[in-house]
Simulated assay, not measured.
Amino acid sequence: MHKLPQHDRLPPYDRLELYGGLSRRQRDRLLTAAVHNDLRLVLDDPAKRYCAAVQAVHTVRERDRRLVNGLTKEIAVSRENWRDAVITAGEWLLSVPGCKPIDRAVVLDLWLAEQGLCPLVHYAFDRWYEIGSYGRALPPDVVDDLVELSTTFLFRLVDTDIPGYEGLRHIGTGAYSHVYRSPSGGSVFKVPRNLAARAFAAHDEYLAGRHAARSPLATFLPRDLGWDPATSVIEREFIPGTAGVDLLLRADFRKAPFAIDQLEELYQAACAVFADDGVNFDIHPGNIKWNHETGRWMLVDLGPMPTIGADYFPRDSFARYFSKIWFDLHDLMLTVPIRSLDIDVAGRDS
């Protein structure tokens, strides 16, 4: 097997640069969302975090520009040197006495935003990701992973509209796309609903699906039927059945889950692809359907997850995976409702 062709994917710098093409209001919203998420390190309450995020951005932008101006003066950012520039900026901020992690994150994000580049989130999956290494060598792919994570989540906040599907039956909405049933009923159209999907996520899903079709996962996948590069719309075989997350609501399934051997085969195939190629399929019960007609589990959402957070899925034991990702799901939703990022600033003007 081969890794996803990187030359076909939108490069990290191009993903960052999408930020510069947004309106001022959209840019401010994404900047606030990044800080709002990172403040989870010290504040749990979402309303308090939002107010603190707005205040933090205002303070650095309007009243205390010393550090932002220092970065701008010392470091020039270009397509050729952007990784080194971001690492240098992180190191520079680490050398400032009394500058705390949250302060460094806000200054770095505002500096990036003023260069027309997307801010970076620093807190995800209960970990703080520092840009900088206190003088130690920092692998460039650490920065690439943060760019992948940050743009994937933040650009979901920028709505987009792809006309032409209004007359079709709407059967669902996910993080990236609206899903419509084709007139014949044999396929579905995944139509981008935000900038992340329109600019790169849908294309990455299409590439991942083609890649997986040449892997042991192939027998668990719907057929790819089309890709429109002009709109980033994916057409895929419609799979009837019941999502795993809905089966978990049934007492009979929780008591005696069926086709476990087959589900373990799907799990092992997805883990093998991740181990060999780093493609992280979201093997979550909301993305896996039981097809009653064929008696098979099917992975119906092929969007690859960012590298950061890939260890959310236990990779060394199907029993641990099934317990954590399936049976512990509802308890986790109540006790740990935010397991990745919290960028929900919808409806609030920043």
Results as ranks from 00 to 15, higher is better:
R63W: 09
L334V: 13
L22D: 05
D159T: 09
D224T: 14
P192M: 07
M333W: 09
A34S: 04
T72F: 01
P140R: 12
T307E: 08
A256G: 02
R214Q: 12
G98D: 08
E148S: 13
G303N: 10
L299N: 04
E80M: 12
A105G: 04
R63G: 00
L302I: 04
A76T: 15
R214E: 14
L225P: 10
P216L: 03
Y267S: 01
G241M: 00
T88G: 05
H203A: 07
D28K: 13
A113W: 08
V158W: 04
T173H: 14
L67W: 06
L207W: 14
V57M: 01
C51E: 12
L334K: 15
F318E: 02
K100H: 14
L94W: 09
V68K: 03
Y321W: 08
R25N: 12
K324Q: 15
L146M: 12
T59Y: 12
G135V: 07
L154E: 02
V191K: 10
L263S: 00
P222T: 05
D246S: 09
G135P: 02
D282E: 15
I288W: 00
F327T: 07
P183K: 08
Y312F: 03
D14S: 14
G226K: 10
T59N: 02
N37Y: 03
A243G: 13
L247V: 03
P257F: 03
A275M: 04
D331W: 13
A272L: 12
A275Q: 09
K289E: 00
A196Y: 03
V158A: 09
L168Y: 13
P97C: 06
L39C: 01
L31Q: 00
Q6K: 14
R83Q: 14
W111S: 02
G70P: 03
P337Y: 08
A230F: 07
F318V: 07
L207T: 12
S215E: 01
T72N: 01
L22K: 04
K48L: 15
L263R: 00
F318G: 00
R214D: 09
A137D: 11
R40C: 03
E114N: 09
S182R: 06
D301F: 14
A213I: 03
R83K: 15
K324M: 10
T160N: 01
G98E: 08
D103Q: 14
H203L: 15
D45K: 08
D328I: 11
P12D: 05
V179Y: 09
N69S: 11
D126C: 02
A124G: 00
F258D: 00
D64F: 11
A199H: 02
P304A: 02
A213H: 11
D277I: 07
R25T: 11
G174Y: 05
S23Q: 08
I234A: 03
D316W: 05
R49S: 04
D145Y: 11
R65E: 11
E264L: 02
K324W: 05
D246C: 03
